[in-house]
Nucleic acid binder design. Structure first.
Length: 482
RNA sequence: UCCCUAGUAGCUCAGUUGGUUAGAGCGGCGGACUGUUAAUCCGUAGGUCGUAGGUUCAAGUCCUACCUGGGGAGCCA
């Protein structure tokens, strides 16, 4: 076979020029045709579209053509032609075909037909080869790039915070233990506890649940920083919005108060959504069509807004900013509350909002993203800036339709005494957190930050319903295959 | 972790008040067709009914436990 430099399908489909001889490599999606002519739909992962390969059957060996099955990897030299069919502008007329990797159709689980997302989740090693998961992988990459671009343009520094941490004080969730101790023969102290002094780090260590505390250390020297890394929660959460291993973006900014923080969060989310619309439109259109198909059977009232329309809607509307106490008033006077429709009725200040309440505010009352602020201090973390009323803290949660909380953040408590007292009240071991408290002893300053769950963003941008489908290899309770 | 729900062919599902030999569509394979778009038409193979117990003359169907998936809740991002 003549050696020709490979052309990527995404580039080839953009050409209007015909007559040139090219090489394409990829995986066969479908083959159809008759004794005279075969049509092979070829995909190489570079875009959602397939390239149509036209095979004049008499020009090729029958046994070779038999090997061109769904899933097979092929390399093709051929001529770029204007297509006489209606589905595509250009196609490639095959001159030489090499089957690089055969694919036994009796054993290959992906068939040229629609598969359920649940089934594909069981074959996550192969689901990249489907249109849906190919599109998601490309959008995910674009979003990763956009995160770095946004912060770089704004002069933020990317900080790598540790994955292994000795602090378990933040209380963000149950942690995964990290150890090299022999689990069948654990060293004990005289009191009978496990002796972590003999462990690798000489103390008990865990996988991080947040890079925030270390991020604050950097922000209080570098000004504006962000982290973007893996985060681990050992909670036994079995929902479509939680993962045991997920990626989080945590900006932390010196000299920002809560309003600056909200401004940044809103600008950031809009930047990411616009980036997706500007750079991933083909993939988003595919995902949108997929959703429309799925919703065909649904009642009008259950149907959601079309994906691209929804993304543009978020771009063109200001987020509602609402203090917790006002949200409680709205909910208290709402129809579902008065009619007893809420499973958890609103009785007044102090209780945390349930999913049903957040959804009512976002999806029914305001019908746009909502930032709730100034929550009761008792339901929020120790490091949040205490308000003068003594009851609330300068927290903010950004709530999105369908997915709920996409961002959680706050202005941080910069006053040493207030922070130390709050830690004592909440029984957080201040002596282990000496390094964190030091920032409040030496040149402390107003600062703020937030955390964005990257997969939650992906849910919103792709319109997917289950978080396990927007990360390549999901980690959830009882599942760590692949 | 709690509540609800499901597990039958490679995939998606049907299977009546428990009753003879478990069905369909898609996919596969074979054939037909000179340009198809998840092609179409004809034919064909393919099942230890999630696992383990139990009830019964008889269990895919009823009961119990467990496993796994899905939806919801809590925890949160």
């Amino acid at each position: 076979m003549e050696q020709i430099r490979r052309t990527k399908i995404t580039d080839l489909l953009k050409t209007t020029e015909t007559g040139q001889i090219v090489n394409v490599k990829g995986w066969v999606r479908t083959k159809r045709g008759n004794k005279q002519v075969n049509f092979v739909a070829l995909n190489d992962g570079t875009c959602i579209h397939n390239l149509q390969i036209v095979v004049d059957v008499p020009n090729f060996d029958e046994s070779q053509l038999k090997r061109i099955t769904t899933g097979a990897a092929v390399s093709i030299n051929g001529e770029v032609c204007a297509s006489t069919g209606s589905g595509q502008a250009v196609e490639v007329l095959a001159k030489e075909i090499e089957v690089m990797g055969d694919c036994d159709v009796d054993k290959y689980p992906l068939q040229p037909k629609k598969h359920s997302l649940e089934f594909l989740r069981e074959i996550a090693h192969l689901r990249f080869r489907t249109n849906t998961f190919g599109a998601i992988a490309r959008v995910r990459h674009a979003m990763i790039f956009a995160v770095h671009q946004f912060f770089t343009q704004k002069g933020f520094l990317n900080i790598h915070t540790p994955i292994i941490t000795a602090s378990d004080a933040e209380g963000a969730g149950e942690m995964f233990k990290v150890t090299t101790l022999d689990l069948d023969n654990l060293p004990r102290t005289e009191e009978g506890d496990i002796n972590f002094k003999e462990d690798f780090f000489g103390k008990a260590t865990n996988l991080t649940v947040s890079g925030q505390l270390e991020g604050e250390l950097a922000a209080l020297a570098m000004g504006e920083i962000y982290t973007f890394g893996p985060t681990f929660r050992a909670e036994n959460s079995n929902t479509s919005r939680h993962l045991a291993e997920f990626w989080m973006i945590e900006p932390e900014m010196a000299f920002y108060d809560l309003n600056d923080n909200m401004d940044l969060a809103e600008e950031f989310l809009k930047f990411l959504i616009k980036y997706a619309l500007d750079n991933c439109l083909d993939d988003l259109k595919f995902l949108s069509n997929r959703l429309q198909e799925e919703e065909k059977g649904k009642k009008a009232e259950d149907k959601t807004m079309e994906l691209i329309e929804k993304l543009e809607f978020v771009l063109s509307n200001d987020f509602i900013r609402l203090p917790y106490t006002e949200a409680i008033d709205i909910l208290k006077n709402s129809k579902p509350n008065k009619k007893g429709k809420f499973k958890y009725p609103i009785d007044g200040f102090g209780s945390d909002l349930q999913s049903e309440h957040e959804r009512y505010l976002v999806e029914k009352h305001f019908k746009k993203p909502v930032i709730l602020t100034d929550y009761p201090k008792d339901i929020k973390a120790f490091y949040m800036k205490q308000n003068e009323d003594g009851k609330t803290v300068r927290a903010m949660d950004v709530l999105f339709p369908q997915i709920g909380e996409i961002i959680g953040g706050s202005q941080r408590e910069e006053n040493y005494d207030k922070l130390y007292n709050r830690m004592t009240e909440m029984e957080i071991p201040a002596e282990e957190m000496w390094w964190y408290l030091d920032t409040r002893r030496f040149g402390s300053v107003v600062h703020s930050g937030f955390g964005l769950g990257f997969e939650r963003l992906m849910l919103f941008v792709t319109g997917m319903g289950n978080i396990r489908d927007v990360i390549p290899f999901p980690r959830t309770p009882k599942t760590a295959e692949f």
